[in-house]
Design a protein around this nucleic acid. Structure first.
Length: 924
RNA sequence: AGGACCGUAGCUCAGUUGGUUAGAGCACCACCUUGACAUGGUGGGGGUCAGCGGUUCGAGUCCGCUCGGUCCUACCA
């Protein structure tokens, strides 16, 4: 062991990772029960954020645990081509050089994207390595790999054959900036302030006008009806008549429809079937014409009067309002709050737009997907997310899967000159299947598939499907999916639907759903807020100047730079220290309670870095006392286990049981907390301290010393294996220094067996005895602490009272007691009448006497006793109240009543003893 | 509009089926460089468990309402 007394994570972490990877330790063992996790594929060109950090820390703990337990583990990694996101990044780079993708053309543009992928695609996988993620790199996948594309193509073709994919001209969510359709899920509606315009629409017969209220004046050019409620008497006489649409001059009918709310606005609605989802449906019901008035940029097209053609939609709005006003058709404008649909990527207002797209018919798929969760084949943790899943699934809409992008899986469909689509693997096979003559020109669909269509196949598509491979048989269904709630619909739900349909089994048995990683104040981390933490910076540390630079450069709104800089300098005056991966991971685990967002408090990572340091130094102590010494590993039984040894071994079994239990429940917070408490409190604070008086005692027997060394090293070695899934690096580093002394062999702790509790080692007597020692020691320390008696001042202590065994306990444990409480002597008094005047503490029935002479102030002790007595009196009052209540004594279970009764007796006794003591001191 | 979750110490969080004096880490106060560790040790202070009502012998825990916060879904032009 090095002589370093402080833990230096940078010195060990990367070396070990490289070693593990090069040795192939991450790959499946091909023995034992399979256990498989598929990584939620991050965007190939992305970089690691705190969400990835958390997510991967959780997966790695699970996989390392199972691997150590002897399972055949596969943690498969891969990245996603992320259609829109990646294309946008490359387009932005081109835009900086004033080039559009259309200038390049499809092929050249795609080349640029592949170049960008080659350039930046390794970043995130390198960062995953920094986290210690033990993924099987040999099976790394990319969603645009040839093999995966085969699966995507196959799925599309088969769904089409099954009648579950169709092409249709319908209203879609159109993004006028990105020039593509997007799915419902990619639309975010935001509450915005707008207006409600009231327009007069004149009746054709000249008998007056109707007033319609609208939030989108510009669409009036595409109106093909005005609707009223059939229950609205005000307009009943007008139904069937027509109005003459201002500015356009078109004659359009007045219709009645139940969907109209007569109490909203004027009770009259203008109907634009080609540009509003509700109007579209109404148009279908009433066979209204659909007039598309926009082009793909959401500029007015040739379907509108010449003067408006080419106008951008919001410019058109202004113009139309002005024109209607000039003609006397504008009645009023009211301020109005409305939900505006915006594209989640582009941020622009989404336009309902009539286009031809490919759709997945989801209802039949959803049916099975609902059943799989209902019958428990898939379980969500925490369970509440099942409701969210059900409510969405039960009301699912068909899924628009075509995107007018270039980067993605090209749709395997070809069109003949009439526009008739044929779906198949390639042109040749389509000609063959459909008997098409060679001279009939076919052109492939220009569109690509929604990224989520391909990621929906992730669990089985990456295992070789449609081939029935060995891996598919072994690892599918996968064991657990670890993912954020934000992609339950995008990804989880679709994986379930597609996998059930094709693989006839669930994609995973458990879905562990976690929240968003936020900053310490619960704010969402974002570049614009300047509160982003980079996991790598927490691992390696970062100086304040670099951090400020990082947070303030490349802002969308540079005006916030100053504010961000100020806040950053205030929060991190000295930058961020290098905490190391193990500490970062442990922090994630400690915050991994289920069902809520994770507020990442930087204060906590420091605490867990200290925990690593604690473990490091505990190992240091153990090695100092065991190296080159007989640690009782020769197979003979010539060693003795003392009370402390039996106790720590017993506690260890309990700890192992609990950790395994919590891991099974996916409560990594409780598991890590249990480990923390055992290592710090039981092992370091008590066991190591209890070992000192034995190892340093010349009178202690060789057998007892050997038993102590044996226990120190073996418990430490077990702690390392227990902790390894959580803190892989530090445990591996120490393990290699410890394993021989502990009688263990093996090339790596990664593949050493995970500790399993042995009930025969649970020793209730030892636990009770050590609790007694701890109680006495703590009582003495409390007096010392409150009376400011430093440990360097050795004191004499007397014990009295207690049971018949007390004297024996005092004698047997006097070495422990003297060392731990820093005593000169400890003696049992059969009667305390002849005891010197003492400060007194009670531990159960045992009385602890610390002679005051020369060390304790009379007044201080009197007021200390006063506080103690007051506290006890309050308790007596409370308990007495309970016991005096017949309702309680009659109805509560007997053992509960007895417990209260015992408490009362104990308190009363304590009060009388302390009061007596108070009297003695006061009389002095 | 419907639904979910949350509100516990100054901060970030635990608190299993209701039952000791509600816990941890950080922060705070005091003492201590004791032969693993000052990234440490020992002791201490600090909470009307958001509020109100109910069920119960007993509620942080179960039920209802109110307030505050976060989010999801569906929407009225």
């Amino acid at each position: 062991m090095s002589t370093d007394t402080t833990y230096q994570p940078a010195a060990i972490e990367q070396t070990w990772y490289k070693h593990w990877e090069s040795q192939g330790y991450f790959a499946p063992s091909h023995t034992g029960d399979p256990y498989c996790i598929m990584i939620p594929p991050p965007n190939v060109t992305g970089s690691l954020h705190m969400g990835h950090g958390f997510n991967n820390a959780v997966m790695d703990a699970l996989i390392r645990l199972k691997r150590m337990q002897g399972h055949n583990t596969l943690w498969q990694v891969g990245t996603d081509h992320a259609g829109i996101a990646t294309q946008m990044v490359v387009e932005r780079q081109l835009a900086a050089k004033n080039i559009s993708r259309h200038d390049l053309g499809r092929e050249a543009f795609l080349e640029k994207v592949w170049e960008w992928k080659a350039e930046s695609g390794g970043a995130i996988t390198q960062q995953l390595r920094r986290l210690g993620s033990s993924v099987d790199w040999s099976r790394e996948r990319f969603t645009m790999d040839d093999g995966f594309y085969k699966a995507v193509q196959e799925v599309f073709i088969r769904l089409h054959e099954d009648g579950l994919i169709y092409r249709g001209k319908r209203l879609v969510n159109w993004d006028p900036k990105l020039h593509t359709a997007i799915s419902d899920l990619e639309v975010e509606s935001t509450e915005e302030q707008g207006s409600l315009w009231h327009f007069r629409y004149p009746l054709t017969d000249g008998s007056g006008f109707l007033v319609v209220a609208t939030t989108r004046p510009e669409t009036m050019l595409g109106d093909t009806a005005v609707a009223v409620s059939p229950a609205d008497e005000r307009y009943a006489h007008l139904i069937g008549k027509t109005i003459k649409l201002p500015l356009v001059g078109r004659e359009i009918p007045i219709i009645a429809d139940d969907c109209v709310d007569k109490d909203f606005g004027t009770g009259c609605v203008k109907i634009t079937p080609a540009h509003d989802f509700n109007d579209y449906e109404m148009g279908q019901r009433h066979q209204l014409p659909m007039i598309n008035i926009f082009d793909k940029n959401a500029h007015l097209n040739e379907a509108v009067p010449q003067v408006y053609q080419g106008l951008e939609r919001f410019a058109a709005r202004k113009q139309i309002v002005a024109d209607l006003d000039a003609l006397g058709f504008l009645e009023k404008i009211e301020p109005h709050q409305l939900k505006v649909p915006r594209g989640d990527r582009s941020g622009v207002v989404i336009e309902p737009y009539l286009t031809d797209q490919w759709y997945v018919r989801t209802a039949p798929l959803a049916e099975q997907a609902i059943a799989a969760v209902e019958n428990g084949n898939i379980q969500f943790v925490p369970k509440q997310y099942e409701n969210m899943y059900f409510s969405w699934m039960r009301d699912i809409q068909d899924w628009c899967i075509s995107r007018q992008l270039w980067w993605g899986h090209r749709i395997p469909a070809w069109y003949d000159p009439e526009g008739k689509p044929y779906v198949g693997r390639d042109e040749a096979s389509i000609r063959k299947t459909h008997n098409l003559p060679d001279n009939l020109p076919l052109t492939q669909d220009e569109d690509v598939l929604d990224t989520w269509f391909s990621s929906g196949l992730w669990t089985f598509g990456t295992l070789g499907w449609p081939e029935q491979t060995r891996e598919l048989a072994a690892f599918h269904p996968t064991s657990v999916l670890v993912t954020g709630f934000d992609i339950i619909f995008f990804w989880v739900a679709r994986m379930i639907m597609l996998t059930l349909h094709f693989q006839k089994e669930v994609p995973f048995k458990t879905v562990y759903v976690h929240g968003l990683v936020r900053d310490g104040q619960g704010q969402k981390m974002s570049k614009s807020k300047g509160n982003v933490l980079d996991p790598i910076d927490l691992i390696d540390g970062i100086d304040i100047e670099t951090l400020v630079q990082k947070r303030t450069s490349g802002l969308m709104q540079p005006k916030y730079a100053e504010k961000i800089e100020k806040a950053t300098r205030k929060e991190f005056p000295n930058g961020i220290a290098a905490y190391g991966t193990d500490a970062l991971r442990f922090t994630f685990y400690s915050l991994a309670s289920t069902g809520r967002d994770i507020n990442f408090d930087v204060g906590r990572i420091e605490g867990y870095r200290n925990f690593c340091n604690k473990l490091w130094n505990a190992a240091n102590y153990v090695l100092m006392n065991t190296q080159e010494q007989d640690c009782g590993q020769d197979g003979s039984n010539n060693y003795t286990l003392g009370l402390a040894e039996r106790w720590i071994v017993s506690q260890l079994q309990q700890t192992e049981t609990q950790i395994l239990d919590y891991m099974a429940q996916l409560r990594l917070d409780l598991a890590s907390q249990t480990l923390y408490d055992f290592v710090w409190k039981d092992y370091c604070d008590w066991y190591i301290e209890l070992s000192k008086p034995v190892l340093w005692d010349d009178n202690a027997s060789a057998e007892l010393k050997k038993g102590t060394r044996r226990t120190l090293i073996r418990v430490l070695e077990t702690i390392l294996r227990l902790a390894h899934p959580f803190m892989p690096f530090i445990t591996e580093e120490i393990w290699h220094k410890v394993k021989d002394l502990a009688g263990k062999t093996g090339a790596t702790i990664m593949l050493a067996p995970y500790p399993a509790p042995d009930e025969s080692k649970i020793d209730a007597k030892a636990v009770a005895d050590v609790e007694w020692v701890k109680g006495i020691v703590t009582a003495i320390r409390t007096i010392r602490g409150e009376m400011n008696v430093p440990p360097s001042k050795k004191i004499a202590v007397f014990i009295s009272g207690g049971s018949a065994a007390t004297q024996l306990q005092v004698n047997e444990n006097s070495t422990f007691l003297k060392k731990l409480a820093s005593l000169e002597s400890i003696d049992y008094l059969h009667s305390d009448t002849d005891a010197p005047l003492s400060a007194t503490a009670l531990f159960g029935e045992v009385k602890i006497l610390v002679p005051m002479a020369g060390i304790i102030d009379k007044q201080a002790e009197l007021s200390r006793l006063e506080r103690e007595i007051d506290k006890l009196k309050k308790e007596v009052e409370r308990v007495q109240g309970k016991l005096n209540n017949p309702a309680f004594t009659d109805k509560a279970p007997a053992d509960v009543v007895q417990k209260e009764q015992d408490k009362l007796t104990g308190y009363a006794q304590a009060i009388s003893q302390l009061t007596e003591q108070q009297g003695k001191i006061a009389a002095l």
